[in-house]
Structures are given as C-alpha cells and as structure tokens.
Design a protein around this nucleic acid. Structure first.
Lengths: 335, 335
DNA sequence: TTGAAAGCGCTACCAC
DNA sequence: GTGGTAGCGCTTTCAA
C-alpha cells in the first residue's frame, strides 16, 4: 500500500511546475506537444490520479449526486436508482445511493449532514409529504415519483390518477361492482391520486364505493397480505381488488395463494406497477405499468442540466409520464 | 440557494479564531464552556456544516467506502450491499454502491479512477477470478462471496462445496439418480465449489454424473430457463435439477411453469439461495440458504477495522460462513 | 509556453 | 484556553 503520488510528485519528477502538469491534466490550456507527452507518460508510469477532494474543494464541484430513496427492496425504487446511475455515469458523475428507511428524519439528516452538502445535487423520493424542508437546500434537487404537486421544485412523476382510474374502469367493464382498494396513506400525492382515481372511476360508472372495501394502510407487502385475508373472510367479500402498489400486490398474491382460492376466478385483481410475482402467478396479473427506469433517467438528466448551468434560473419543470394498462388474466369477466 | 458558510465565516462572526471554532467542531480539544456554547449557537444559527472535501484532504480520510458489486438485480448482491450499508452507517461511514455490470473492465476502471482513490476502502464481489489486479490497490479491501481462495486478501464467503453437497445428497436420499445441475462458470470459486459439491455427492453415493445433465452456463435467469427447457425435452430427462444460484432457480421455475408440468411431481428441484419465487411457487422450493445480509455486515466490519487501525498489519482473515438446507416440497420422494 | 503564487476550507502544531 | 500559521493537493490568475 504505497502512498498515492500527487501532482507535485509528478512535477518534481519531470522538473516542471505543478501548473504545467495541471494544465495537461485538464486539457483546456495550451501546452507544447513535447511537454504534454512527457507529462502523460509520467502520469501513466507513476499511476497518478488527481486527488478528488482537492479538486472538488477548488472547483467547488464533487461530481457526485445522491439518490435518496425510501428503500431498495421495493423494485420500483431500485429501478429508478438504476436509471439515475446510468445517466450519471454517462456524464461522468457518480451516484451515492442512500436509503432513508422511509424515515423523513433520516432523509433530512442526510441532506443537512456533511454528505448532503458535499454532493452536487440530489434526486429524492421523499418519505414525507412536506417538502418545505427542501427550500433551504443549497443544491439543485429533483423529486421523483412523490412531490405532492409542489411545482416549485423540479419533479418527474406519472399520471397516478389516470393509472388507477383505468385500472378500476377495466374491472368495472368486466362486470365488477364490489371492488376493493388496498392503498397507502393519502398524505403523499401518490396515495391521494391513486385513491381519487379509484373513487372517480366508481362514481363515473354510478357505483357507490363501499367503505368496508376501502383499505388505506401502508405500502407494504404485509399490509397487502393482511387486508386481503380480512377482505376475503368477510361475509360479503369483494369480487375484485385494486392493489395500489407493487408491495401490496405481492401481499395480495401471497394471501390468495395461502387461502387456497383461485386468482381470476374466486377473486379478481389489478396491480399498480408490474412485479415478478405478478408475471409468475397463474393467471398472470393485469397491471398498470409505467416507465420506472425512465423516471430515474429523466430525473437525472434534469438534475445534471441544473448542475451544469447554474445561472439559468429557469422555472421548475414538472414532468408527468403516462401509464398504461397491461391486460393479463387476473380479472374475471362477470355475467 | 445561498452559499454555504465556511468555518471562517463562523469565526469572523464570533470574533474568534478558526482554530477555536475547529476545536469545538471536533470536540477533542479543551475549550471554555462559554466559548463552546457561543460557537455551537452560531453554528446552528448559520447552519454551518464543515466542508467535506476540505476535511478529507487534511485528514486523509473520506469516510466513504465503496461496495463494488456485479449488479443490483440479483437479490443476493442487494442483500450484501444492505448489510454493508447498515454497518457503515452505524460507524459514521457512507457507502458508495457501484455496479460493474459483471465487467471486470468497469470494476478495475472504478478502482483505478478518481473515485476508487478517494474512498477509504472497498468491499468487492469481483466479476473476474483474477484478483492480482488488486494487489496494487493502495486501500484496504475485502472480498465477499467470490475470492478464488486467495487468502492473501480478507474475505467472507460461505461453504459453497458443502451447500451443493447437501443439496444433492438430499435429492439422492429422496431416491433420485438422474440429477441435473445448472450452474455458472467454474473460473470463479463459487462455480467451481458448487460443481465439486455436486460431483462429490454423486460419487459418494456411487452415482455416475451424466454429462448430458451437466449444464455449465451463466448465472442468469435466461440460462436457467433455456437449459431447463432443453433438459426436460430430452428423451431421457433428469428427475431432479440442482440450481446453483437464485437467478438460475428463477429461470427453472419459469420454464416449469411455462412447460405446464408440475414441480415436485414431474420434476424435482433444489436451489442455491432463497428467493421470492421459490417461496411463492407451488410447492415451495427446497433451497440452500445462507446469511446474505450477514455476509455484508461482516465484510464491512472487517473493512472498517482495517481502515481504523492502519498500522496493524495482521494476517488477512478468510471468514467462511455455514449454509443450511431448508426442506420444502419441491423434491419428490421416489420409490 | 511555462512558472510563481494565491487561495479553496480545513486541521494541527506551536506559541502565547 | 485561544490565536497564528503552515500545509493538505489542486486550479487559476498573473507575469515572464
């Protein structure tokens, strides 16, 4: 473990000034071909790489962005992160992934802490509906998926309302009326909108949503599981369930499995976001799908653009992506 | 987006020297209670946070480690990463996750690049069997899962040999003789050992492994899928398959599903590493399980220990964790 | 085309 | 207990 060489070492070895070495490293300035070659050779031979911390302190840029997500076990989040990484990498940025464990405390602590300050910008999927905390943040930021319709920030999201509307509409058109929804809390825009989409579709088709079929819980598999058991054990159970996210959908699938009843026959199901179980189950689950990876990519592009032209104080961009219904076999045709 | 205050700003505001402010920030030195309080108040009010780059350049420590993994879509890798993050976070370190996409080129490029230099250490799941590249790396490093039995590095792995041995032994004891294995390349120790475990168990029970049942491919779902189709379409198909990793296992499950034959009846299966599909399928899949999260935790502890006491050039630690067989219903009892 | 030197924000050593 | 100051490794004027 020998000490890494510094720019001074290289300069000294070549009997040149550090300025000159710095010049060839940065390419921008004019240096004689001969000198350039000498330097490059030495750099290669000595295996010199600029000290990152030193560069960032003088350039005031760290070339790292952070992806701040609630967790990594929800494939949607992971997919977004991978989209971010791909774009960042392609533009010479590194991505620091940080999971807040769904805790806004951890989320804010990260941002306020040293790390949050030393990145060039942040892409966050917030755990809390209140984004006011971020107005003080001194770096560019873009919200993905959840942004509570606060258009004072850049954001990329999808048409959640329409997603659940068409999901529920599909069930209705297949003849269902006793439709349940298992969804997350309404504080976050995603929860609110997906609930509204459900509600709107029902009313549009003159079906009064039944309170006992409406389950507002957490976005977790276990809540999906438990609520499904509960719903299906009622004396007047629903004929169809709308799962407002993938974790819930997975929980529902496991519950159905466990209860030993038949999907698409004894109970119908539509999920929000595709997932592996949904594609493996029998029949496969009809889902609302969205370009998850793309959401990360667009978010990263937006962020990097802001980082690169700091001056341009253009108005924040609120990008909304479409969703689509993928019909598979999990909704039974009634009548 | 106001400019972040520096330690000088704080000092100036208080009419104190930067040294004093630095002292209270770092806690170590003795400062009068009164001064300390004044500083702390100002820090809070001004929302001052030390500039990370500056600190690392003088302390020669960045407080970030890197987790360098082949990809994040294989749950095993993700689980290891999460273990790493947990330990790192608890010790005030940040984790930079980097996926090499299974390319040793990308892996080495990262290490040799600026980022690789500016972290305090690395935990890597290598994509290539040749670890000699890393002997030049000037930072502490620990290998997880794959280390090619090179005990000149710290490593944490599991007893792969025993894992596949007991998997295959289980099938044999259930009466199977026509046992297939779908596994990854043998260059990596994991591939080699898992193959040997299979081979050893077979010979131990006087069963000659049949070449046509031995599929050495990539650790991917698609290879698992294709090889399964192939195996099951043979005129003398195997009665049981051993899936040497989770991706392959998932592929097998999908193929079985697709072929419309019955798991645990028409074909038996044991997988290496648990996975969601294995727990969802009907019947559930018997698997070899290991403490994936723990592997990351131990790796991180090892690394941080090295980072913290640089002097102690103790001999490298090669930690090997046990595996266990979880019997579920995917192996049919023959005779 | 090249070099000298200032300065980025911070810590640590040496005075007082 | 507190302040002054030299550097850490680098980029960037400004001169030569």
């Amino acid at each position: 473990m020998k000490k890494a060489p510094t720019i001074t070492d290289v300069a000294r070895m070549l009997n040149l000034s550090v300025s000159t070495v710095s010049r060839v490293m940065n390419g921008r300035d004019r240096v004689s071909d001969e000198t350039r070659k000498k330097v490059l050779d030495a750099v290669k031979k000595m295996n010199y790489v600029p000290n990152y911390a030193a560069v960032s302190i003088v350039k005031k840029q760290s070339k790292v962005i952070v992806a701040l997500v609630p967790d990594l076990n929800t494939p949607f989040f992971l997919s977004v992160v991978q989209g971010i990484e791909e774009i960042a990498k392609s533009q010479g940025f590194f991505t620091m992934v940080f999971s807040s464990n769904g805790s806004s405390l951890e989320e804010h602590a990260f941002i306020n802490g040293t790390m949050g300050r030393s990145v060039d910008g942040a892409i966050v999927i917030p755990s809390t509906p209140d984004l006011s905390f971020y107005t003080d943040y001194s770096k560019p930021i873009v919200f993905v998926d959840r942004f509570n319709n606060d258009y004072s920030f850049d954001s990329v999201s999808v048409d959640n309302f329409r997603g659940s509307y068409i999901a529920v509409e599909h069930m209705i058109k297949m003849g269902h009326k006793k439709i349940a929804i298992i969804t997350g809390p309404k504080e976050l825009n995603v929860g609110q909108e997906r609930y509204w989409g459900f509600d709107q579709a029902m009313r549009e088709y003159d079906i009064k949503p039944d309170d006992k079929y409406i389950r507002i819980c957490d976005w977790t598999e276990s809540d999906g599981y438990n609520n499904t058991k509960d719903l299906l054990n009622m004396e007047d159970p629903p004929t169809a369930i709308f799962a407002a996210n993938e974790n819930i959908c997975r929980g529902i699938l496991k519950a159905i499995h466990n209860l030993d009843i038949e999907l698409g026959k004894d109970i119908s199901l539509v999920g929000f976001d595709d997932n592996e179980l949904a594609k493996f189950s029998n029949p496969k689950v009809t889902v609302i799908s969205r370009a998850t990876n793309e959401m990360g990519k667009i978010g990263a592009s937006l962020l990097l653009e802001k980082i690169n032209n700091k001056e341009s104080h253009s108005i924040p961009q609120g990008i909304c992506l479409p969703v689509k219904l993928i019909i598979r076999g999990s909704v039974k045709k009634l009548n």
